[in-house]
Design a protein around this nucleic acid. Structure first.
Length: 624
RNA sequence: GCCCCGGUGGCUUAGCGGUUAGAGCAGCGGCCUUGUAAGCCGCGGGUCGCGGGUUCGAAUCCCGCCCGGGGCUCCA
């Protein structure tokens, strides 16, 4: 159906003569209507009642906007070369009028099948003239790749339980959540999907104030800019996760970020994955930007020679970036982005026994990863999702995950399998707005080896399809930072001092001279700390010491060293330790003791220098 | 994507039909120079998100778009 929609001061029309034998009967007089929307409407082959109604619903929205409630449906064949038969067209036009009337719109229809003369006066505002095209069964426009999984998921029947570490499985509504408030929030979020908070997420304010990251208007929503401090934190976490995963034995690789949308193995997978893609056009090809490392790794593995002796075979990539063109309303600060950095580790396993064994290793790896980043077991909740069949055959395995986790977990059981996996678990963080987001996750995939032609040769020399585990031990790096910031905010709200883990603090030690006379000493101390691989800087700006301390505190710097005559004479530094409560916050210690304490605190974590000048007067402000 | 809310110097904001749009912070210039969360004075800086409309007159009212937030929905 095509509609030319005109916001008119008036229209006058007069039927002259019948164009077709089936024309409606009508008086030959002139008709005039004022202050209305005229809909020159063309019914096309295949249009149905649903199209008629949808057209009216769209028009109704417009009527409400411009505060008009009168329409004229004017049959107008010239808008299409694919006309519906006249009888059908008449039926649909009449349906439009009746439906409009039922919605309280004052609706008229010009007679069908006549040659008419008309005069019209169209208003001059920008919205006055519009063209609409409505086709039957139309869902998304623009020939976009819409996931079948998205549609399938709407039909999924889920059963919700809480599994306790002792193995008992209790329907969610019978579980006593006392002592498990966070799990209660998480379960409520997952099941009822109801939340009623309306405010900027705390981490968004913090990521800007701390000059970590910000929105970039010139890009697509959900694509962020990262300032030096944010980039440092992000790359430290990336390196930490990479070290963990490679220590676990994964082979680190790199694969392209875009793929041909028409590639046979990929086209199918696209439909099985519930996400929308960015499309890049290149000459006559269309490519989609990856939303995970799956394709690249699967294509690589399908070309590899793999023996049962190599299994379980682990392969890893840190996707910088993965892209998911989430609907604009779903984006939220660092919690939900369109471009994000995600570690993705696949494991090929010979059979379900090996897969379960490997899954347990990865489960532990994920806990160690999150806890290394700076979250504790209290900060995240476990969800396990599986099919009914899988549960019945692998109950012990599911319970063993909960046992390792050590807290009750939310379980979702599906009657049927809609996805490529039979089991999936995630660690979820619940934020200050009671929203839950997945961090670590792993899946047992029973479908993609075959789809991608990934095989291994077993003991008998036969080709077999392995099972594939898909794990992100930390989840998106941006989301880890979101969790750390939300956690810090929560601590502050409860009267504590917010801070980042010391290994992630952009400045670990700030040196402040009591006056300009001690600038030289302050600089020397900062330089010495830097020489010892500690991120130190010094405040050389012409401000009062009090103000410098205040600013250092607002930057969440873990250690502030004030240098004056006393320190020079005694050789002991006055160290303001952020981890300690107000009263005893200042500790006397030597530089050596300070260095050792930081080294001990950050042991086993990667180190990178901060790429900002050591002297604060040389630093630009990126925000505020 | 749909619905609701918002966008005023770099940041936080006042003004919400009627003078040259006002402030704090930051920046710049100067003064001050020893002890743990804001020292003092001065100066510069604004197509009031963008486009259109209404009006004698628009930051202010209307429409569209962009960006952000929230909700629906969805996910790492």
């Amino acid at each position: 159906m095509k509609i030319l929609q005109l916001h008119s001061n008036f229209i006058e029309y007069r039927p002259i003569e019948k164009e077709i034998p089936s024309a409606e009967e009508t008086e030959g007089r002139s008709y005039r209507l004022e202050d209305l929307i005229v809909l020159f409407t063309c019914v096309e082959k295949g249009d149905n009642i649903e199209v008629a109604r949808r057209a009216i619903e769209e028009v109704k929205g417009f009527l409400e906007n411009i505060k008009v409630n009168r329409i004229l449906i004017y049959p107008y064949a010239h808008l299409s070369s694919n006309l519906a038969p006249p009888s059908e067209a008449l039926r649909i036009l009449e349906e439009m009028r009746v439906y409009a009337s039922s919605l309280g719109i004052e609706a008229y229809r010009a007679p069908f099948g006549w040659c008419k003369e008309f005069s019209i006066s169209v208003k001059g505002h920008p919205l006055a003239e519009q063209f609409k095209s409505i086709s039957p069964g139309e869902r998304a426009e623009g020939g976009e790749v819409v996931s079948k999984a998205l549609e399938a998921e709407e039909k999924i029947v889920s059963h919700w339980f809480i599994i306790k570490p002792d193995g008992s499985m209790i329907p969610v509504d019978e579980f006593d959540f006392s002592g498990h408030e966070n799990l209660k929030k998480f379960a409520a979020y997952e099941i009822s999907k109801v939340r009623a908070v309306q405010q900027t997420p705390p981490h968004v304010t913090l990521m800007r104030r701390l000059e970590l990251a910000d929105y970039e208007d010139a890009s697509d929503p959900g694509n962020f800019r990262w300032y030096p401090k944010g980039n440092l934190i992000k790359s430290l976490i990336e390196e930490f996760v990479t070290e963990k995963v490679t220590a676990y034995g994964a082979l680190k690789v790199e694969t392209p970020i875009m793929y041909d949308i028409k590639h046979p193995a990929l086209a199918n997978y696209l439909h099985r994955f519930p996400a929308r893609q960015y499309i890049v056009k290149s000459e006559d090809k269309e490519l989609f930007l990856r939303f995970s490392a799956c394709f690249g790794q699967f294509l690589m593995l399908s070309d590899a020679q793999i023996s049962y002796r190599h299994l379980p075979l682990k392969i890893y990539e840190l996707t910088h970036y993965s892209f998911r063109r989430e609907k604009s309303g779903e984006l939220a600060g660092l919690r939900r982005l369109r471009a994000f950095t995600m570690p993705d580790c696949h494991a090929l396993c010979a059979d379900m026994e090996q897969a379960k064994e490997e899954a347990i290793k990865r489960f532990k790896l994920s806990m160690e990863t999150l806890e290394g980043i700076g979250l504790t077991r209290d900060d995240y909740e476990l969800a396990i999702r599986f099919t009914k069949d899988f549960y019945e055959e692998n109950k012990d395995f599911i319970v063993s995950l909960v046992k390792i986790f050590g807290k009750p977990a939310l379980a979702e059981m599906w009657d049927e399998r809609f996805f490529y996996f039979v089991l999936k678990w995630e660690f979820n963080f619940v934020d200050n707005l009671d929203k839950a987001s997945a961090l670590s996750t792993d899946q047992i995939d029973i479908e993609n080896a075959e789809r991608y032609g990934i095989t291994y040769v077993d003991e008998k020399g036969e080709k077999k399809y392995p099972l594939i585990l898909h794990c992100s031990p930390s989840g998106a790096i941006e989301r880890d930072i979101y969790a750390l910031l939300e956690k810090a905010y929560r601590i502050q709200k409860m009267g504590g001092t917010p801070m980042l883990p010391i290994w992630l603090s952009p400045t670990q030690v700030r040196v402040i001279p009591v006056s300009e006379n001690f600038n030289r000493e302050a600089e020397k101390i900062a330089e010495e700390l830097i020489r010892r691989n500690i991120r130190a800087d010094w405040d050389d700006r012409p401000l009062t010491m009090q103000k410098k301390i205040r600013e250092a505190e607002m930057e969440w710097i873990p250690f502030i060293v004030v240098v004056g005559q006393e320190e020079i004479s005694t050789g002991k530094l006055a160290v303001r330790d952020r981890r300690i409560r107000r009263e005893q916050r200042i500790r006397r210690m030597s530089l050596e003791e300070l260095v050792n304490e930081i080294k001990k605190e950050t042991e086993g974590k990667p180190f990178k220098p901060l790429t900002l000048p050591i002297a604060l007067s040389k630093r630009p402000r990126f925000y505020g």
